[in-house]
């Protein structure tokens, strides 16, 4: 069972607000799904290499060349808050 504390922690990691109802329905849904996927443990995967990329390819590389022009004006046209070319966020304290 997913504890309320765990749900709170997941929401914090994912930067999602806990629902106004305290998350009972959400907790129930997640429990249902996580309980169901837990059946994966039944598979005998001893010695099996995980398949992370279909076809098991290796990485193709690009040459070290500057190819991208300055497009910040186009990129920032849809930005919610910009000033002097900078994206603005509430004050960050280090």
């Amino acid at each position: 069972m997913l504890s309320t504390e765990e749900l709170r922690r997941l929401c914090e990691l994912a930067r999602i607000d806990l629902p106004a109802d305290g998350g009972a329905a959400l907790q129930h849904d997640l429990d249902r799904v996580l309980g169901w996927v837990a059946q994966l443990a039944e598979a005998d995967t001893e010695g099996v290499t995980p398949l992370t990329h279909p076809g098991d390819p290796t990485l193709r590389l690009r040459e070290d060349r500057v190819t991208e022009p300055d497009e910040h004006e186009a990129f920032q046209r849809t930005a919610p808050a910009v000033e002097d070319g900078l994206y603005l966020v509430p004050k960050v304290i280090e």
Binding site: L30, T49, P50, L51
Partner: peptide, 21 residues
């Protein structure tokens, strides 16, 4: 987030990628 988080990664994510194989 849950299946990748500390302590669950092997049982869920890695196991799922093995099942995928």
């Amino acid at each position: 987030t849950y299946v990748l988080s500390h302590g669950y990664y092997d049982a869920y994510y890695r196991q799922a990628q093995k099942v995928r194989r």
